[in-house]
Design a protein around this nucleic acid. Structure first.
Length: 797
RNA sequence: GCCGCGGUGGCGGAAUGGUAUACGCGACGGACUCAAAAUCCGUUUCUCGCAAGGGAUUGAGGGUUCGAGUCCCUCCCGCGGCACCA
């Protein structure tokens, strides 16, 4: 017999909504708990089965917390700016906002059909002018603080479509639409100086509870590296070249300098010399190489001599200055001191017959010692000759070199400043105006939001400007400062803008005076648990931490870190093990599962399918198993009786214990297994008391809220199960009178005995030896007897 | 190349150094049924054995331990991150 999932789902969803049971209270005296899942991009394809995985998990925690007496904020919204809506607009001529609104309605309906306990009264939408007004306001804060600046940055450019491309539109170096190889085109863009926060973003990771792999990825992405800058006077020219090295103690081996082709100093080095034309040709060639090609194994290191030498401050050596394609402009200073102790440098030196010097003797006669090992004893190294390389000595060398005026300690980062301009329509307009007299001027706050105007044509313009550049009525404006002729910025913000602060808006979603009141923020921040995909670890997570830190510095938010704890879920793949994709035809639609089996089946199945953090394949037959479990659970109502087997009572308290701890440890799959064990026990024993069953419903409700409430009502419960207290296990019920003990001989299981729980060791050993099968193996006195209380006896013979 | 995580039945997966394979799927046998579905009961790591019981088994090989899926070493495979990064 199968329960009417459709009727039950709708009934309880309607009642929850009407009662507003999941709405957070800003004026509650209860302890707050702010739980957050990443808000989705409302794509045209509708919800993916991956979405409910993390939503269910955090929903389970939210429901448990409410039952534990917390004032829980668990909100939902839409990260709705983005390329697909714009492309749809280009294709159909419809406005992206109508498409987006349709998608949002679909997503909302889908999420509501799964019974998540979101507080829908705080729904946010990044494309709503009432929302992006504040995104623009925050950008102006960055601008006013001097953290937003203009820089010439290369964009992806399709020479056939005459259009700038987002990174995701570049597939294997080619334009996604027409297959033309993508070029780089320099464009003046707004940048935000996230690198100014690099050290704090790194250091403050120690103050938050993130999964270790998340912390590690952020650390690697920030890529802090300590080292030293050396100054090199170029011979015959009034130019000083600054090189960066992370291995300063090895510097006595350095014999030549290498400069990145894009480095502006190159032109000055070769100007008017016989090397100029060769150098320029080399630079042109190097620029044409895509980043993809650079990282291929077959990439050949080559370079040209500039005809210049620079003086090594350490040794006074004349170091030939080369330009080489392996030097990167955006790491360190763009200039490298090269030596025999770097595999890549040696390869280059041998190719161009540049002399090399070693300062640490080889252990392998064929290969110089690598500087990366940072071990060995130095020779020919000035004051460090004869000394071994240790972390202390490295530090000492930096101090000494600096004291001599050779250079200074320097820290470099992998992290780059944030390119904040997009030449796109469907994003927040950057609220700046360019005045011929005053330069870039902020749009006054009382004129925000700068609303996206309606356009006819969503294509980027032929010179790579945003579609907004074609709208004269938008572009032409007056300078807010001098009233003179001015033009609006036509670039829009990246997707990451609106999502960098949405969690703050939830605290006070309808405020039209501020992005959120200080009191509301103080009440809710920081977020207790934030769950999201690993793919957002380096961009969204880092951007939003930075954004929050900036607002914190400006006094607008109460905590330096927005997320006290960050957790992550694994992806759901298709049954065939591949990624779900339209082109593979292996996509599972969550609506179908809800339609066929009900919301609770989808929820419980997604929790049961495997460890929450790991990638798992979808299994249609696994779904059926969960549905069978829920049918069995509902049928327990027929087994209600005045008495129950003690095994049922015990199982109940074990279940309470296990579910409570599993939810806290994100062990949702084993929690579901325990729910199943309980239901199986009741089935086996044939009866359960009403009281026990109603207690069980309180631990079932986070997982299967519709089924739990339906049963609750059938048993005469009032209100919602969610309004009950979270049960506490009776520890005395967890104890058994007797226990089974394993008996091993030489570590091999030979039998089991059942003994009283408080039986003395001597008797247990005696009983173990008396076991018929054990006796066969234990002849005479055992050499040693190991007794593990309550577990086993092991005889060593 | 460096770093991190993982490899357990036919499948998804459980196991604070202490009875490996919980829970689910699938499969097989049975009950109910005119029949099927649903449901219920039973079996199900492999292997030898009528049975009692034995042997093997957590990617491969070593080690520590009374005892290792779990700890250590070497290697193989998969996933993820970083990477001509000075």
């Amino acid at each position: 017999m199968s329960y009417d999932h459709k009727g039950i789902d709708e009934k309880w969803q309607k009642r929850w909504m009407e009662a507003g049971v999941f709405n957070a209270k800003n004026d509650s005296l209860k302890e707050k708990c702010y739980l957050l899942v990443e808000f989705p991009y409302p794509s045209g394809a509708g919800l993916h089965v991956g979405h409910p995985r993390s939503y269910t998990a955090i929903d389970i925690i939210a429901r448990k917390r409410r039952m534990e007496g917390k004032n829980v904020l668990f909100p939902m919204g839409w990260d709705a700016f983005g390329l697909p809506a714009e492309n749809y607009a280009i294709k159909t001529g419809n406005h992206p906002s109508t498409f987006t609104q349709t998608n949002i309605d679909t997503f909302r309906r889908q999420l509501q059909s799964m019974g998540f306990s979101f507080d829908w009264s705080r729904e946010v939408n990044t494309t709503d002018p009432a929302y992006y007004k504040w995104t623009q306001w925050m950008f102006l804060e960055f601008f006013k603080a001097g953290l937003a600046y203009k820089a010439e940055i290369a964009i992806n450019w399709c020479p056939k479509d005459l259009c700038g491309l987002a990174n995701e539109e570049v597939v294997a170096g080619k334009c996604e639409r027409c297959g033309t190889p993508v070029e780089k085109k320099l464009k003046s863009q707004w940048m935000i100086a996230i690198t100014k926060y690099a050290d704090r973003l790194l250091a403050d990771l120690d103050t938050v509870n993130y999964l270790p792999k998340i912390k590690k990825q952020q650390e690697e992405w920030i890529g802090r590296k300590e080292g030293m800058i050396f100054h090199h006077q170029v011979k015959d020219l009034d130019i000083v070249l600054d090189s960066f090295t992370a291995y300063p103690i090895w510097s006595y081996a350095d014999t030549f300098l290498v400069i990145a082709p894009e480095h502006p100093v190159v032109a000055d080095l070769v100007a008017g010399t016989e090397y100029e034309s060769v150098t320029n040709a080399f630079i042109e060639e190097a620029k044409a190489i895509s980043d993809d090609a650079r990282t291929e194994d077959s990439f050949e290191k080559n370079g040209v001599f500039t005809g210049r030498v620079a003086i090594d401050p350490l040794t006074g050596r004349e170091m030939p200055v080369w330009i080489a394609n392996f030097a990167l402009m955006n790491f360190g200073t763009g200039i490298i001191r090269c030596s025999a102790h770097d595999e890549r440098d040696v390869e280059f030196a041998l190719k161009y017959q540049i002399p090399i010097v070693e300062v640490v003797d080889r252990t392998n006669p064929d290969v110089p010692v690598s500087a990366h090992s940072n071990t060995g004893v130095l020779k020919d190294s000035g004051p460090f000759t004869g000394k071994s390389i240790t972390p202390e000595r490295i530090e000492e060398s930096i101090v000494w070199f600096a004291a001599q005026g050779f250079g200074e300690k320097h820290v470099t980062y992998r992290l780059r400043d944030w390119v904040f301009s997009r030449q796109r329509y469907w994003g927040e307009p950057i609220p700046l105006v360019h005045c011929e007299k005053d330069g870039w001027v902020a749009v006054p706050v009382d004129q925000l939001p700068v609303v996206l105007p309606n356009v006819e044509n969503y294509q980027p313009t032929e010179n790579g400007e945003s579609p907004l550049a074609n709208i004269e009525s938008f572009v032409n404006t007056k300078c807010p400062q001098c009233g003179g002729v001015a033009r609006r910025e036509t670039d829009t913000m990246p997707n990451w803008a609106g999502s960098s602060w949405y969690f703050l808006r939830y605290a006070d979603a309808h405020n039209d005076k501020e992005f959120a009141s200080k009191e509301a923020l103080k009440q809710w921040m920081p977020i207790d648990i934030y769950n999201g995909g690993m793919e957002h670890t380096t961009l969204h997570l880092l951007y939003s931490r930075f954004w929050n830190k900036f607002l914190f510095d400006r006094g607008y938010v109460p905590t330096s870190e927005p997320y006290a704890r960050r957790h992550s879920h694994g992806m759901i793949n298709a049954e065939d093990g591949r990624k779900m994709s339209k082109s593979w035809g292996n996509v599972v639609n969550p609506d179908e599962i809800v339609g066929q089996h009900g919301a609770d089946t989808l929820r419980v199945y997604e929790m049961f399918m495997g460890p929450f953090e790991e990638m798992v394949p979808w299994s249609t037959s696994g779904v059926i198993g969960v549905r069978r479990f829920l049918d069995k659970a509902i049928r327990m109502v027929e087994k209600v009786s005045d008495t129950e087997d003690v095994a049922v009572t015990k199982a109940l308290h074990q279940t309470i214990t296990k579910i409570s701890s599993d939810i806290e440890g994100f062990g949702f799959n084993t929690a579901v297994a325990q729910l199943m064990i309980f239901v199986n026990t009741v089935q086996e024993k044939g009866s359960i008391t009403k009281e026990s069953l109603m207690t069980f419903l309180r631990v079932l409700v986070p997982f299967a809220p519709h089924v739990a409430n339906e049963l609750w009502e059938k048993l005469g419960g009032t209100g919602f199960v969610e309004e009950q207290e979270w049960p506490v296990a009776d520890v005395s019920m967890l104890k058994n009178d007797s226990i089974e003990i394993a008996v091993q001989v030489n570590g091999k299981l030979r039998g089991t005995i059942v003994v009283a729980v408080d039986e003395v060791e001597e008797t247990i050993v005696k009983m173990a030896r008396a076991d018929e099968n054990v006796a066969k193996y234990v002849i005479g006195e055992p050499k040693k007897t190991i007794v593990v209380k309550g577990k086993l006896v092991n005889f060593v013979v």
